[in-house]
């Protein structure tokens, strides 16, 4: 269990230096730097999309339908004569927003479940973990689709569905780490000195189980963005005319023979974004969870 590696991290007073150290270590990894830069650019595009994009996302060029990429339209135009490049840029905002909100939901719900289950144990652990097993028993995509069958299609509902789907993984990751720190001396000392459960959980347990949660958050962002694109692709996520990468891909699919650019570029955008989150997640895991790193590189597998 890799989470056991996180038991001996410093408690209070050293948080700052630990995060600085993490950033410094990340900075030494060129792949992490590249993916960080890609994600930074993505955030800039998402925030300032309107200023960066050459045209509006629904601006139609009469007579300019299905035009191949050119100096005027870098990624070509779609069947309504809209600029694909501008739509891809605007799509960044949708993808990031859905990803962040969805993962935010899983993070809050899952970490809370994991903290309570791991810390209090007994029946609460059983109830919460069996519930998380139930959610886990559904294949992710299918569960999101079933939830959207109930809630109805749309961007907000897609966020909720993805958020629910990825909740159990956060619960499991958190619980496993809590179990490994629960009996540590500093926790016992804090309890013995009269600290209430809330204080022990917030001040001592949570900071010491945060590393795997951070790694999980980064990786989940990748999957959440992928899921949003997939749901929009099948028509259950973002609705037209909003520019969502998944939606654009499904529209482009219908014109694949005449206009390959309509499907190529939105897909490439999804791919690059998801890859950047995955690479960053891996790099973070290397830095925050060294035992996992040694197991992966095989240098100290038995240690």
């Amino acid at each position: 269990m890799r989470d056991e590696a996180l038991d001996a991290l410093p408690v209070e007073g050293k948080h700052r230096s630990r995060w600085v150290e993490t950033l410094l270590l990340l900075g030494r990894n060129p792949m992490a730097l590249v993916s960080g830069a890609v994600l930074f650019a993505l955030v800039v595009v998402a925030v300032f999309g309107a200023a960066v994009a050459p045209y509006g996302y629904n601006e139609q060029f009469a007579g300019g339908q299905l035009e191949a990429p050119s100096g005027q339209h870098w990624f070509g135009t779609d069947e309504f004569g809209r600029d694909v490049f501008s739509r891809v840029l605007f799509g960044a905002e949708v993808s990031l927003r859905v990803g962040l909100v969805a993962v935010g939901i899983s993070l809050v719900a899952g970490v809370l479940m994991g903290l309570l289950a791991g810390y209090f144990g007994r029946w609460l652990d059983d109830v919460l973990m069996r519930f998380s097993d139930m959610l886990f028993a559904f294949p992710a995509m299918l569960m999101a689709i079933a939830i959207l069958a109930i809630l109805g299609p749309g961007e907000n509902n897609a966020m909720i569905a993805i958020g629910i789907v990825y909740t159990p993984i956060f619960a499991r990751v958190t619980r496993a780490s809590v179990l490994s720190v629960r009996e540590e001396i500093y926790i016992r000392a804090s309890r013995a000195s009269g600290a209430g459960n809330t204080r022990v959980l917030a001040r001592h347990v949570l900071p010491n189980v945060s590393a795997p949660i951070i790694v999980q958050t980064t990786v989940s962002l990748a999957f959440a963005i992928l899921s949003e694109a997939a749901l929009s692709f099948v028509g259950l996520g973002t609705q037209p005319p909003d520019p969502s990468w998944g939606r654009m891909l499904s529209e482009g699919r219908g014109f694949i023979e005449q206009a390959w650019w309509m499907a190529l570029f939105p897909g490439l955008a999804i791919f690059v974004t998801v890859l950047a989150f995955n690479v960053l997640g891996d790099a973070l895991r290397d830095v925050l969870d060294p035992r996992q790193r040694s197991a992966l590189s095989g240098k100290g597998g038995g240690a």
Partner: peptide, 9 residues
């Protein structure tokens, strides 16, 4: 990281 639907297309 590659979206399966994109790869398929």
């Amino acid at each position: 990281s590659i979206p399966d639907f994109w790869m398929g297309i």
